Simulated scan of single mutants.
Amino acid sequence: MKSKAQPSLLLHKPYGVLSQFTPEVGSRWDCLASLVPIKGVYAAGRLDADSEGLLLLTSDGALQHQLTNPRFGHWRQYRAQVEGAPTEADLEPLRRGIQLKDGPSRPARAQLLDPSVAAGIAERNPPIRHRLSVPTRWLELELTEGRNRQVRRMTAAIGFPTLRLIRWSLDLMDGQPPLNLDGMEPGQWRWVSAAEEKRLKQLGR
């Protein structure tokens, strides 16, 4: 087991898993304990059970606060497969900030995902359900806030419901590359490197 000097780890959370270590009574979803056999770490930011992607797990409460409080403005990048064929112009309301039921969203970075990148995204298990007569497209969205099901509500508000959602990266806003899913398969986790841990400790101070 890893020593206490390096408590944080990265997980590629798969579909169908809650962002917590205890199961919910009566829930059909699994929990993190089925994937990560490490005690005393918790998710710094949540993903819905039907979403996938990067989770940072840590025992550092100050770091959790730093990464989850929207006033610190850490960009999170998502890749969203939506129903329909949006254009760049369709995404403009997301860039300006769009009105949601719980108030306007902050301006997001939004663009169509390069088709060559989208082609490299592995199929989900289980596969998404969609109408074969309706095309789908992948978007790349970056947000600094994380309200309940926010990305899904934002794409629905412009007429393109999200079918699949993956959090790809987390920007620590320190001038270095974001933490991301490169090289990680769904369900796989790894300890952060010594260099990554140093960056995280500086944030948690």
Score class of each variant (00 low, 15 high):
171 D>K: 00
82 V>F: 13
112 L>S: 09
178 P>C: 04
109 R>A: 09
88 E>G: 12
182 D>P: 12
40 G>D: 06
187 G>T: 09
62 A>T: 14
98 I>V: 12
87 T>K: 08
6 Q>A: 15
88 E>K: 13
135 P>E: 07
51 S>E: 00
31 C>M: 03
60 D>S: 09
79 R>L: 13
148 N>F: 15
152 R>S: 11
200 L>E: 06
165 L>D: 03
157 A>F: 06
37 P>R: 07
16 G>N: 05
138 W>S: 01
135 P>V: 03
141 L>N: 02
43 A>T: 04
63 L>P: 06
91 L>Q: 06
105 S>D: 08
88 E>R: 14
96 R>V: 15
197 E>C: 12
114 D>H: 11
159 G>R: 12
194 A>F: 13
199 R>F: 01
113 L>C: 10
178 P>I: 05
53 G>L: 07
49 A>D: 07
184 M>F: 01
173 M>V: 10
188 Q>L: 04
138 W>E: 05
12 H>V: 08
46 R>S: 01
119 A>L: 04
184 M>L: 11
128 I>E: 13
169 S>F: 01
104 P>M: 02
22 T>Q: 14
202 Q>E: 15
7 P>F: 02
114 D>E: 13
149 R>M: 09
187 G>C: 06
146 G>L: 00
104 P>I: 03
39 K>G: 13
